[in-house]
Structures are given as structure tokens and as C-alpha cells.
């Protein structure tokens, strides 16, 4: 089995002499990534910076990031899983069928060369983007890639990390984990946390229309959800907290304008490597912060009579 073998970004900066980006376009989507954390940085053990590092890019098409790469491997769309599986076999020294590899758009020699480089490096890292985890195969692709990184540790140091985006998604993930035990897709309707991605994830609930109110904070589902989900948001009372007008705020029943966290109100953001950063306001805003609005809503709700008629204890299941 795999798991997740990772590190904070400073380790990449200080040590990574082999950097593989898979299914992402950091040059455009994470514009500071190359310069701040990875290929362009001089590190404690890489005083020569860019020259000391090999960068490989795997993607289905040529993007702006290709220019930054030493090696570009163009995979046929939907064939990521097959490529990773072939790599895992080659890493273990197993025979791989040439014809099967060619279906992916790559040649066996290219993969063997990649594996040789991976084994030769002192510290390898794989960053994988949405192109990998959101296409055919979905979480199976990420799982295979994470397993590849884990297995590489039998030969040399290797880590892997998803390229996450969307503001403070890592922060939301962290808080959900320590309060509910699960990172996302959590349902609290029974008074305790249940987890089932595919059933309780936001997109599933919205598409099925299983909700009768929506509270949207730091996201714009009206821009990204499938149409049936958007229809649900328009049908039910939707409340949006956002500094600006968004697709979601336009279809919401209530839009409360809040100050921008990190510019006008303080807070904490978690980096994609799950390192917390304090946010300090630099400007004043006439609007309240998200936190203040949420607190006031909680205070108002608490004035209502409790709806849970349960005794003060409850333990079910097995310890």
C-alpha cells in the first residue's frame, strides 16, 4: 500500500535535485512556485541553484511550463495511470511490454531513462496538479503516484505533494480534520461526523438537491458546479459571505460583504504543504471580517431554543 510521503517546501528548496511536475502548469497556475520554492532557488545543499536540479514535466499538452523543463514527456489524455503503473514496474525491475507503453504516447526508453534519473538523484519530488487528479482515473491516479514516491524510498529519498489551489483550501481541510476527524465530505446531520466522499461531498449534495439551505464562505460554487448543483443553490436560501460579487452571490438570497482576509482582516492560511502562515491586515475596511459575521450568526442562533432533545451523553459504536 502507498500512503503519502511528503515534506514542507523548504526541504524541496534545500535538497531537491530532481523535480517532477505531473499534470500541472505551475508557470501559469502557481506563478511563484518555481522562484520561491523549487527550481530557481539556491538551497542549503544546492548552492548552484537551477544548475543543480533536473526538472521533468509530464502533461497531455505543451504549456508555458514546458520552457522551464529539462525534459518534457507528453502523455496521451487519460493515460496517466498506465504511465505511473509502468514506472512502478520499472522501478522494481519488472519487465514492461513495449506495446503497452506506446499506447500512452511515450516510449519504453523514455520511461526507463526517467526511472534511472529518479534512482540516481539524492532527493526527488513529484508535484501533481489538477490535470492528474481530476481527469479519468481521478483519485486512482494520485494514489498511484503517491505509491510510486513511497516505493522510490527503497532506492533514494523521494516525496510527493499535490499542487493545491483555491485560497485557503488547505486550512479548511486542516480544521475539519481536527474537529471532525475527516478532511472533507463530512455530514453532521446525525449530531456526529460521518464521512463519505461521493455521497456527502458538496457537489453531490448540491446535484442531488439534498439540502434546504446553503452557507457559502471563501468559495464560488456558482462558477464551478455542474448546472443541477447551481440550480439547487438558486432554489434554496443561499447565504454568501464574500468581499466581492461572485457567480454565487448573484444567485444568493443574501450576500454579506466582508473584508478581504489577509488585506483588511487578520487570519491564518495554510500553505499547500500544510504550514500555517499568519495573515496581517495592511488596510482598513468598512466591512466586517468573515469571522465576525460567523460569530454574530452563531450568537443569534444560540439564542434560539435548542433543537436537540438528547441527554448530555452519547456514545455509539465500538471504542
Amino acid at each position: 500500500m502507498g500512503g503519502k510521503v511528503s515534506c514542507t517546501l523548504g526541504e524541496v528548496k534545500n535538497r531537491a535535485d530532481f523535480i517532477l511536475y505531473w499534470g500541472g502548469n505551475p508557470a501559469e497556475c502557481h506563478p511563484r512556485h518555481f522562484t520561491k520554492y523549487t527550481i530557481m532557488q539556491k538551497g542549503k545543499f544546492l548552492p548552484e541553484g537551477r544548475k543543480g536540479r533536473t526538472m521533468v514535466l509530464v502533461d497531455i499538452r505543451e504549456t508555458m511550463s514546458v520552457k522551464a523543463a529539462d525534459i518534457f514527456l507528453q502523455v496521451r489524455p487519460g493515460k496517466d495511470f498506465e504511465v505511473v503503473t509502468a514506472l512502478r514496474a520499472l522501478v522494481k525491475g519488472n519487465r514492461v511490454d513495449t506495446a503497452l507503453v506506446e499506447e500512452t504516447g511515450l516510449k519504453l526508453e523514455q520511461l526507463q531513462d526517467l526511472v534511472d534519473r529518479m534512482k540516481r538523484c539524492k532527493f526527488g519530488v513529484i508535484f501533481f496538479g489538477m490535470g492528474m487528479s481530476m481527469t479519468r482515473g481521478k483519485h486512482m491516479n494520485s494514489a498511484a503516484l503517491l505509491t510510486l514516491a513511497a516505493e522510490m524510498n527503497a532506492f533514494t529519498k523521494f516525496v510527493a505533494m499535490p499542487m493545491r489551489g483555491h485560497g485557503n483550501v488547505a486550512g479548511a481541510d486542516m480544521v475539519l480534520r481536527w474537529t471532525t476527524g475527516y478532511p472533507f465530505g463530512v455530514n453532521l446531520c446525525r449530531g456526529f461526523p460521518r464521512f463519505n466522499p461521493g455521497e456527502f461531498s458538496t457537489v453531490d449534495l448540491l446535484v442531488r438537491g439534498d439540502i434546504d439551505a446553503a452557507f457559502v464562505l471563501g468559495a464560488d460554487p456558482g462558477a464551478t458546479m455542474p448546472q443541477p448543483g447551481i440550480d439547487t443553490l438558486a432554489r434554496v436560501p443561499t447565504i454568501v459571505l464574500d468581499p466581492k460579487v461572485t457567480h454565487t452571490s448573484k444567485l444568493a438570497r443574501v450576500h454579506i460583504t466582508t473584508s478581504v482576509t489577509g488585506i483588511s482582516s487578520p487570519g491564518t492560511a495554510y500553505r499547500m504543504d500544510e504550514v500555517p502562515l499568519p495573515l496581517r491586515p495592511v488596510l482598513k475596511s468598512p466591512y466586517p471580517s468573515d469571522e465576525e459575521v460567523v460569530r454574530r450568526i452563531i450568537a443569534a442562533v444560540e439564542k434560539k431554543t435548542a433543537w436537540l432533545p438528547l441527554p448530555a451523553t452519547m456514545a455509539s459504536g465500538v471504542m
Partner: peptide, 14 residues
């Protein structure tokens, strides 16, 4: 695991 129900005085959890 054991589930902790939200009550008037306690938060839910696991």
C-alpha cells in the same frame, strides 16, 4: 470509533 454527539454543552467529535 466511538462517536461524540453534539449536546447543549459539548461539541461533536470522534
Amino acid at each position: 470509533a466511538a462517536k461524540f454527539m453534539r449536546t447543549k454543552d459539548t461539541r461533536m467529535g470522534i
